[in-house]
Design a protein around this nucleic acid. Structure first.
Lengths: 252, 252
DNA sequence: CGACCTTTTGATTGGCGTCAAAATCTGTGG
DNA sequence: CCACAGATTTTGACGCCAATCAAAAGGTCG
């Protein structure tokens, strides 16, 4: 795959907490005057073209990021070349904090759509958090929320069949999108912008794109969903939630 | 299952960082004089009998815990009654921090062996962390380590077959035990105390106990492991690690 | 010693992967 | 604006890994 270059954004937004995104979790609800110091740490914003890698697993990264706009995927590739998507990142998500003992990130991150990320030098993260206990606590509880979600995926994976795990994933992404990016939600049709391909879905839930396709067609036949032009229409949320044992409170 | 009662320990250890466990992660390496304040928060220690529930999923718990001694399992049960073990907790692990939006824990915790836990009132956790930024940061990075492990499980689950996931789990638990509880490790035979049943293993990796049994027998036939009397003997660690794509650095 | 839990083994079934090929969509250059 | 290449979706045939069902053989604890 050809890798376009990541460029530095010319006119960075002054502060992430002023961006058009409804919830930007890390700084959400903290009064602006208490955030002036973030300017000291904020380095710059980057534009990541679609299908481009932000960083590669097993590299040592200088930055941690907040996703500002776009969809990204955290993933790993096995020796046999199979890709596992660990998590879809949506605007507001914190990316690249996790490292192993050697300081290497354990996963790759790439952009599904053109994305904008804010980078902080990792070297300054510790001092930044020590100066701001609230932020550290926030980071811990964001981590704990992500952990919940990860464990849900883990739990659902082997306990549930293809119908159930796909139903769960669709609703998870639907609600996270609606929560984070209300401008991408259309109440008329109960639909959201939905960039992942069937192969992405497969790599996330651990099925082949072929099988994902069969299941999605079933869902369409049953009148549960509709999807075209990178939008996902949820037609029967209740039945879908029941099928996937999905509970909204897990994601928002 | 009959549920024995959890009793309060008569003579609590004065501080967790003085206990015989080599690494007690949350307070590891923090000088004792800086830990006096923990006494203020530490409430009491509890003894949890084997096969007993510490708390149940969807309850609101008053405490967060540090596991002091024993093996515990964090798990969930699906509507169909299947149990998924999310994580085995070993001494030093922090338990019960994760909650959903309603403040309910998302998982149950029960003891595989008789266990001792230290409880802190959850209500005081926030003030405790705000007074001690180092601790909050520590908590965040412990969370990030757990997250790594959870993602590994997630990744390996569907990408790998039964041999691979069981090999991975065995080595993970072997190394975590050795790391946390060197008194339970016997260098002579390269073995550790290993309380989980084959059914526990199955519930953790998402296989039936029947299939786990078949795989373990294969491993024994191949001379990779040996197990009896609640001990696990690793005979050919290299081959096992290769089979499970296991890397020590992920767990310690 | 008896009740119950855990391990072990066999026979059968089914969900999902694999392989293959056609149809449709997307974007890029002439 | 069209043409073409590559990506993505769709559909069918076939095979295998692991689930299920069933039952016997240890192990453990009161």
């Amino acid at each position: 795959m050809k890798q376009k270059s990541i460029r530095i954004r010319k006119q960075p937004h002054t502060a992430c907490n002023q961006c058009p995104i409804r919830k930007l979790a890390l700084f959400q609800g903290i009064p602006p005057e208490r955030l002036e110091w973030t300017q000291k740490y904020r380095d710059q914003q980057f534009v990541v073209p679609a299908k481009t890698l932000l960083y590669h697993e097993e590299s040592v990264t200088d930055y941690v990021y907040t996703l500002f706009d776009g969809w990204m995927a955290m993933h790993q590739t096995s020796r046999e070349g199979k890709r596992q998507i660990l998590r879809f990142a949506l605007p507001g998500d914190f990316i690249g904090f996790q490292t192993d003992q050697k300081g290497m990130v354990s996963h790759s991150v790439s952009a599904l759509t053109e994305s904008i990320v804010c980078g902080f030098p990792r070297s300054r993260l510790q001092e930044m958090l020590e100066e701001n206990p609230t932020l550290a606590l926030r980071l811990a509880s964001m981590g704990s929320k992500d952990m919940n979600l990860c464990q849900q995926h883990q739990a659902f994976r082997s306990r549930k069949d293809a119908y159930e795990s796909i139903a769960f994933l669709l609703l998870e992404l639907f609600h996270r999108t609606r929560e984070h990016l209300n401008r991408n939600y259309d109440p008329e049709t109960n639909s959201v912008v939905f960039p992942p391909t069937q192969e992405d879905i497969g790599d996330a839930v651990g099925l082949t794109n072929v099988h994902v396709n069969r299941i999605l067609r079933q869902f369409r036949n049953l009148g549960l969903i509709e999807c075209h032009h990178k939008r996902l229409y949820i037609l029967d949320e209740e039945k879908l939630a029941d099928m996937g044992e999905f509970d909204k409170s897990m994601v928002c």
